[in-house]
Design a protein around this nucleic acid. Structure first.
Lengths: 340, 340
DNA sequence: ATTGATATCCGAAACGTTTTGGATTATACT
DNA sequence: AGTATAATCCAAAACGTTTCGGATATCAAT
């Protein structure tokens, strides 16, 4: 049905080779012929068959993004924004974006990465939520399959990544609270299996130490990055006395769960107790009290990650394959002076 | 590098045809041969080249999902959950999911749909956020390109969809508030260009009329589905006197913006004024006060939409191509008796 | 008139499958 | 013994593109 090179060739009275080369812009076809071919192509409504081209060129013109999801009812604002970032950058370079979801560290997920590493499914992968001893990174590195990660890792392989300096972000938050007079500061960490969980936790411990503040073990919790997890961790923290006067959460969602739990206790966040998050999701400005947090330019990170990946796929290895962004502090109403 | 049919054929001493048919499970190959072929395939680590298969079979084994996004900083919890739903269902049937983002009604978006309608990019599309006189549906219908929509539309074409009965959902909310003694009920509608905006608005007007309640024009606003839009609409609504005692919002995000604005006024939601949302996003249970809303099983809707699409692509046209789900009311703390 | 360079074109192979339409052999039935 | 039937197998074409290695014609320089 659809027009092919052969149709154009017949129409113009020239070989398929010439049509192909004319359209591809090779210099060994006369301008006059090229013109006739182009107009014929336009008239016939020619569009190249991508499957055929891909088979021949041995590439897929497609990028893969495997979303790690806990359970079906997953809903993380991070991903919609990140997808917009990589998707737009990809389409700018005529790449398609293939997306699938798998539970982290599941057999399912491993299989998906193996399929990719085998080649021919996608030309490159974007890896997010990097983990300690990340099996995905290990696998891809060993197959030297093109990928770029959002987040560093601790494995022996060197690999390209974009990341925000989480430890520095937490430092900003701790020192913000210290400046407000807080000394009893709690921390709800993201899962330590996640690299940024590790960095954020480490940032907390380091900055507390640097300020000569004690880290009370009961005041250091861990949550699964959801509001529910934040609420649960907050409950555990606050059941101990004395209570902290400020709680730093590993991400905004957990901060919202924390705030919600605190309010159920009858306390006023931003008055009786200070809370901070991390990520600056759009919602953070619209909860009450609005949330002090660290901004992460997710959309931009998505674009840069994707751009770097496309460069690598096309053999342009980036001058600097390690982008580390410096975080910025956003102070809102959930901050307050320490009361004691 | 990777093993091909030819490699197996050479190895086993049989023709490429036989290998192909053996692996595909045809009955015209001896079981003994099939076994030898299968073990050889396993030993060589054979995986079919999908590009080649697709070229030959003239199908892509891929589904497309074009996300309508307003601006880059878009972040809608709906999409992450929906993608999980369609993605998982798709991979169950060995389909890949191609995702891209485009501003609604942009030239960009139109081009993406045309590319799809032309065929060969994806085998079918999932359309969401259906619009009045939806150009996408018109285009796809006219090309009789396989697609399923989440949401009905008003165009002349009949097309397969999954939808929740929005009008009924709003009816539940209005009557819930009426039962609590409210008569001064306001409504913040989703954009009327969106079909569910239309239905939800209509549901509001109808139910108010059915209960003999007046609809005050100043109490009917419209927002862009974001928290910011909700807050802005709430501000407009509440600047008029008398004030409504209850506000129904077209979605949860706008409800959160509304709640936030109300709290800035020094009023207590769930005490001084009632607010409800629509969607029951996970966050709705974790804001304060927790949000009365209508539940939408997004993940499940994603799965069903996708399953229906795959059926259609494979020529199994569904017995009933119009799934209309009945909504359920979730009462939480943002509800309260009318005070006057 | 020969040579060499340049411009323009093309045939054929290749990418890795699937499918069509037999061909061959063995088996069962008269 | 001859014939129909079933069980196995396969060569070749096809899907639509790109690329390799010339082929041919033209033109300028010797």
């Amino acid at each position: 049905m659809a027009a092919t090179l052969k149709d154009i060739a017949r129409e113009v009275g020239v070989s398929v080779t010439t049509v192909s080369r004319a359209l591809a812009g090779y210099s060994d076809v006369a301008e006059a012929t090229r013109l006739r071919i182009q107009t014929a192509a336009a008239r016939l409504g020619y569009h190249p068959n991508l499957q055929a081209r891909r088979l021949q060129k041995q590439r897929t013109d497609t990028l893969g993004f495997i979303i790690p999801t806990f359970g079906p009812r997953f809903s993380d604002p991070f991903f919609s924004e990140f997808i917009a970032g990589i998707g737009n950058e990809a389409s700018l370079h005529d790449y398609d974006l293939l997306v699938s979801t798998h539970a982290p560290d599941s057999a399912d997920e491993a299989e998906a990465y193996q399929r990719a590493a085998r080649g021919r499914w996608v030309d490159g992968l974007i890896v997010v939520r990097t983990r300690q001893d990340d099996a995905r990174i290990k696998l891809l590195s060993e197959h030297s399959f093109p990928f770029v990660a959002f987040g560093r890792s601790n494995c022996e392989h060197d690999f390209p990544f974009v990341d925000e300096d989480s430890a520095e972000g937490i430092r900003l938050l701790v020192e913000h609270f210290v400046a407000l007079g807080h000394t009893k500061i709690a921390f709800i960490a993201p899962p330590s299996g996640l690299m940024f969980g590790h960095f954020r936790r480490q940032g907390f411990l380091d900055t507390m130490a640097a300020n000569g503040l004690p880290v009370v073990p009961e005041w250091v919790g861990e949550g699964d990055m959801s509001q529910r997890g934040g609420a649960a961790a907050a409950e555990a923290l606050l059941s101990h006395t004395p209570r902290p006067t400020a709680i730093i959460c590993g991400n905004d969602l957990m901060a919202m769960g924390t705030i919600n739990y605190i309010q159920q206790l009858g306390l006023k966040v931003g008055d009786d107790i200070a809370v901070a998050g991390f990520d600056d999701i759009p919602l953070a400005a619209y909860v009450s009290p609005s949330l002090t947090t660290i901004h992460q330019p997710i959309y931009e990170i998505g674009r840069r990650t994707c751009a770097m990946l496309i460069d690598i796929i096309n053999g342009r290895f980036p001058e600097n394959p390690h982008h580390l962004l410096t975080p910025t502090l956003i102070v809102r109403k959930s901050s307050c002076l320490a009361i004691d």
